[in-house]
Protein backbone atom coordinates (compact mmCIF):
# COMPACT_ATOMS: atom_id res chain seq x y z
CA UNK A 1 0.00 0.00 0.00
CA UNK A 2 1.28 3.46 -0.90
CA UNK A 3 1.73 5.62 2.15
CA UNK A 4 -0.41 8.72 2.19
CA UNK A 5 0.84 12.28 2.55
CA UNK A 6 0.10 13.42 6.08
CA UNK A 7 0.52 16.94 7.42
CA UNK A 8 -0.11 17.87 11.03
CA UNK A 9 -0.70 21.48 12.10
CA UNK A 10 0.34 22.01 15.69
CA UNK A 11 1.36 24.50 18.32
CA UNK A 12 4.28 23.76 20.61
CA UNK A 13 2.12 23.93 23.74
CA UNK A 14 -0.93 21.93 22.69
CA UNK A 15 -1.26 18.57 24.47
CA UNK A 16 -3.63 17.10 21.88
CA UNK A 17 -1.05 17.87 19.18
CA UNK A 18 1.48 15.79 21.09
CA UNK A 19 -1.07 12.99 21.30
CA UNK A 20 -1.74 13.08 17.55
CA UNK A 21 2.00 12.97 16.82
CA UNK A 22 2.55 10.11 19.28
CA UNK A 23 -0.34 8.21 17.73
CA UNK A 24 1.08 8.61 14.19
CA UNK A 25 4.56 7.62 15.38
CA UNK A 26 3.14 4.49 17.05
CA UNK A 27 1.58 3.56 13.72
CA UNK A 28 4.87 4.25 11.89
CA UNK A 29 3.29 6.94 9.77
CA UNK A 30 5.64 9.56 8.36
CA UNK A 31 4.20 13.03 8.54
CA UNK A 32 5.13 16.63 8.00
CA UNK A 33 4.63 18.97 10.96
CA UNK A 34 3.78 22.66 10.71
CA UNK A 35 4.02 24.73 13.90
CA UNK A 36 1.37 27.37 13.29
CA UNK A 37 2.59 29.38 16.28
CA UNK A 38 5.88 30.03 14.49
CA UNK A 39 4.90 29.79 10.85
CA UNK A 40 2.30 32.39 9.83
CA UNK A 41 1.95 31.01 6.31
CA UNK A 42 1.16 27.57 7.71
CA UNK A 43 -1.32 29.13 10.14
CA UNK A 44 -3.17 30.79 7.30
CA UNK A 45 -3.06 27.58 5.28
CA UNK A 46 -4.55 25.67 8.20
CA UNK A 47 -7.35 28.21 8.70
CA UNK A 48 -8.12 28.17 4.96
CA UNK A 49 -8.18 24.38 4.80
CA UNK A 50 -10.18 23.72 7.96
CA UNK A 51 -12.25 26.90 8.21
CA UNK A 52 -11.43 27.15 11.89
CA UNK A 53 -8.66 28.13 14.29
CA UNK A 54 -8.27 25.17 16.67
CA UNK A 55 -5.31 22.80 16.71
CA UNK A 56 -4.43 20.06 15.98
CA UNK A 57 -5.51 19.76 12.36
CA UNK A 58 -4.52 16.68 10.37
CA UNK A 59 -4.48 16.80 6.58
CA UNK A 60 -4.45 13.32 5.03
CA UNK A 61 -4.29 13.79 1.26
CA UNK A 62 -6.74 16.68 1.42
CA UNK A 63 -9.07 15.11 3.97
CA UNK A 64 -9.13 17.49 6.94
CA UNK A 65 -9.54 16.21 10.49
CA UNK A 66 -9.88 18.71 13.33
CA UNK A 67 -8.81 17.62 16.82
CA UNK A 68 -7.35 14.32 18.00
CA UNK A 69 -9.93 12.07 16.41
CA UNK A 70 -8.29 8.66 16.48
CA UNK A 71 -11.09 6.90 14.64
CA UNK A 72 -11.22 9.43 11.80
CA UNK A 73 -7.44 9.42 11.41
CA UNK A 74 -7.31 5.60 11.33
CA UNK A 75 -10.17 5.48 8.84
CA UNK A 76 -8.41 7.89 6.46
CA UNK A 77 -5.08 6.14 6.78
CA UNK A 78 -6.58 2.72 6.31
CA UNK A 79 -8.66 3.50 3.24
Amino acid sequence: MMSKAVKVYTTSTCPYCTMVKNFLKEKNITFEEADVGRDRTAAKEMVDKSGQMGVPVVDIEGKIIVGFDKEAISRELGG
Binding site: T11, S12, T13, C14, D35, V36, G37, M53, G54, V55
Partner: peptide, 10 residues
Amino acid sequence: CATCDAPLFS
Protein backbone atom coordinates in the same frame (compact mmCIF):
# COMPACT_ATOMS: atom_id res chain seq x y z
CA CYS B 1 -7.90 26.02 25.55
CA ALA B 2 -5.42 28.87 25.68
CA THR B 3 -2.59 26.37 26.01
CA CYS B 4 -3.59 24.81 22.70
CA ASP B 5 -4.66 27.72 20.57
CA ALA B 6 -2.98 30.89 21.89
CA PRO B 7 -0.12 30.86 19.33
CA LEU B 8 -2.65 31.23 16.50
CA PHE B 9 -3.56 34.69 17.73
CA SER B 10 -0.15 36.30 17.40
